[in-house]
């Protein structure tokens, strides 16, 4: 049992070390309730589809999602036919054709989401020097993930605290590092009209689009959870069996 205690102590010590490693800089976004967290978490399909609507109608004007392809939208509960119809609304560049020219054609399910700007320089030029980030992985590449996205979208303040000098064309946000953000408040009540009749409050839209972005960053989350639970069950039984085997093998050895 000495050994057991030592082992536990070692693991805890390592855990402390790792906890320190993940210590983030800047304000920590408050944790929201999400149906997709936890061992059995699954995405809220309705929220995903509403979130996609918010992305499509609001964010997509400036923010690309290069890693996502239309076919991936089957993962938020759309049918293959719906995805094909949706893709057709967009144009994508293909080619070169027989004359060596690039040409436009309607997008197909296999195509990536089209980017609003052809490249970073064009994006900066159109946005006063600020670069609207690609949102494919935003829920993974920001400390706090979707909690941060939600906090940011709902964290605008009309009046910065007294003494805070806000740059020209900048907005004050509680959760953005440095509190100065070039993106104006993107959401206001009823900015989108939800097909399912959900009232489009800022909180609702922020939550929906955060859910959508969480899915976009980890589309395999549900597969991961369901396989994970099975693997854990398997490992617990295996551990039990091996413990019994070990006990049996060692029964007549004093140690």
């Amino acid at each position: 049992m000495r050994t057991a205690k030592l082992l536990i102590a070692s693991v805890l010590a390592l855990g402390l070390g790792m906890g320190a490693a993940s210590a983030a800089v800047g304000p920590k976004a408050p944790v929201q309730e999400w149906p997709h967290t936890g061992f059995f978490g699954t995405f809220d399909r309705a929220a995903l589809q509403r979130g996609y609507q918010v992305y499509k109608e609001v964010c997509a004007a400036c923010h690309a999602m290069k890693q996502i392809r239309f076919r991936n939208l089957e993962g938020i509960g759309l049918s293959a036919a719906e995805v094909a119809a949706l893709a057709k609304e967009y144009e994508t560049t293909d080619g070169p054709n027989d004359e060596g020219e690039m040409f436009k054609r309607p997008a197909r399910a296999a195509d990536r989401f089209p980017s609003p700007f052809p490249n970073e320089l064009a994006a900066r030029a159109a946005n006063g020097g600020a670069y609207p980030l690609d949102l494919s992985l935003i829920a993974k590449n920001r400390a706090g993930g979707e909690n941060y996205v939600y906090a940011l979208l709902t964290g605008y303040r009309d009046n910065p605290p007294p003494g805070f000098v806000l740059g020209d064309g900048m907005y004050y946000n509680d959760w953005f590092a440095g509190h100065q953000i070039a993106m104006g408040p993107p959401l206001m009540a009823d900015r989108v009209t939800y097909a399912d009749g959900t009232p489009a409050t800022v909180e609702r839209m922020a939550k929906d689009v955060s859910t959508f972005l969480a899915w976009a960053a980890s589309p395999h989350l549900e597969a991961r959870n369901s396989l994970g639970v099975k693997v854990m069950l398997f490992l617990f039984i295996l551990t039990g069996l091996l413990y019994a085997t070990k006990r049996k093998v060692w029964r007549n050895i004093k140690h």
Binding site: F234, L235, I237, L238, L241, L242, A244, T245, K248
Partner: peptide
């Protein structure tokens, strides 16, 4: 090669 032994091996092998 008693039951326990076989069961563990079979289980681990399946995994």
């Amino acid at each position: 090669r008693d039951f326990l032994y076989l069961a563990s091996a079979a289980f681990a092998g399946t995994g």
